[in-house]
Computed example of a mutant assay.
Amino acid sequence: MRMMSVAGVAVALMLAGCGGGGGNDAAAGGAAEQGETAAAEAAGIDPCSLISAQEMSAITTDTVKRTSRDGQVCTYHSDPDDGVQLTVMASGGAKQMQVVHRTAEVLGGMGASVADKGGAGADVAVLTKKDKTAVPKLGDEAAWGMNTTLSVRKGDAFVEVVPPLMHDPASHSGYPLVGKDEKRAIAQKVAERVLAKLP
């Protein structure tokens, strides 16, 4: 499971436990999200069409074997079934960026609360610490998140790029984990190409 997914589940569980009527709120949020996805699909928005498999292969140096789409998310699969995840939303960008910033604060607070709980706690604190390094000048607003995820708002559009965790071992020697600097470079290049195609 991708680190971003683990973080997302943790935040969702924590937020579901806060506030009144969590179950109903979650159901309403899920229904709204499905409605947004259906509207996006009806409008013909296809995140996989904004950057080709060949372009993605050139950026990551891993051959993209196939792409799969789930609503507003396109995954570019390469061996070992890892690859870039690209989310593109034509509207709601300001709200999505609020979620990105709030999630970073919540995760950072969770990590800080266990930082003194031994080695595992310290590891969690490092993993969830808010990334305050400079972001590239993309769109109107950008932010780094866990696993060097890059979130960008351009007008009311939202783009998020989750870089791969590792390279294809067949074409990269050793155990080819993708380093942080390379993840940033991949995420930035993908975001730049996608943003150039948005109005």
Rank of each mutant, 00 (worst) to 15 (best):
M1K: 07
R2G: 01
M4N: 06
V6A: 15
V6H: 12
V6W: 11
A7S: 14
G8N: 10
G8T: 11
V9E: 01
V9C: 02
V9M: 11
L13S: 06
G17N: 10
G19C: 14
G21C: 14
G22E: 14
G29Q: 12
G30N: 14
A31Y: 05
G35F: 07
A38P: 01
A39D: 08
A42G: 10
A42P: 03
G44W: 06
P47E: 12
S49V: 00
L50T: 07
I51G: 03
I51W: 05
I51H: 02
S52N: 05
Q54D: 12
T61K: 04
V64R: 03
K65I: 01
V73L: 11
C74P: 02
D79Y: 15
D82C: 04
D82M: 11
T87D: 02
V88S: 02
K95T: 15
M97E: 09
M97C: 10
M97F: 08
H101G: 04
R102N: 10
A104C: 03
E105H: 04
V106E: 11
V106Y: 02
G111Y: 05
A112S: 13
S113N: 05
V114T: 09
G118F: 09
A120V: 10
V124H: 00
A134N: 02
V135G: 09
P136K: 06
L138D: 08
W144E: 06
M146S: 05
N147E: 13
S151N: 10
S151I: 08
V152N: 11
R153G: 05
R153L: 05
G155I: 14
D156Y: 08
V161A: 03
V162K: 10
P163T: 07
M166E: 10
M166S: 10
H167S: 03
S171P: 04
H172I: 00
H172D: 03
P176S: 08
I186C: 07
K189A: 14
E192I: 00
V194A: 10
